[in-house]
Amino acid sequence: MVLKAEGVSKQFLRETKGTNIFMAVKETDFELPEGMLTVLTGRSGSGKSTFLNILSGLLEPTAGKVLIGDKELYQLDDTERSRLRNRLFGFIPQGQSAIHSLNVLENVLLPLTLYGEGEADQEYAYELLELMGIAELAGSMPSELSGGELRRMAIARALVGKPEVVFADEPTGDLDDENTEIVLKLLKQTAERGTAVLLVTHENDALAYADAIYRMSGGVLEKV
């Protein structure tokens, strides 16, 4: 399923820097094709994460539309959009993102248990934990994990629902070289299985795995 952005832009009100309006993302057209790992690079504050949040249904654009298949994302109400996000999207947020009252396996299974529909594929969850090298921590609480382990847990959680689109916001930020390679390979394999993967990063390691590369600068997106 192709994810498309047509003429999306995002402006914020900012009262501290002379002008009141700050254009985080300028009018942009974009297509995230299935079966490809698309890498979006750019400096901090360039608008990468804002753009990612718009595409993933978390932040309504000031103008333009986001289409997933034939559905216009921001025409759906919050409940419908959230259900769609749960069903079709996997999201690896920046920083630590564990739910501290759940153990590692429960955290990973959370997207599947949130609405209690269908069967949660525990085997696949274990498989992902194996791949991430944290299978032995399945029963541990997040407070017992290191930063890198928590990040790997978040990646497993994003993939457990076999989503059609995966958004990864700096997924290798806390990881060492070995784990970075594992994660990037896994995202690449995910794309090869037909998933549309958008990887936002400022690390050059990811570029080697990319099928398409975009750079964002001052809210302007350009294909490299």
Binding site: P93, A98, L114
Partner: peptide, 16 residues
């Protein structure tokens, strides 16, 4: 807040 944001990201609606 961060935990709730994560729940939102994985598909929890505001209502949930």
């Amino acid at each position: 807040k961060k935990e709730f944001a994560v729940l939102r990201v994985i598909g929890a609606s505001g209502k949930k």
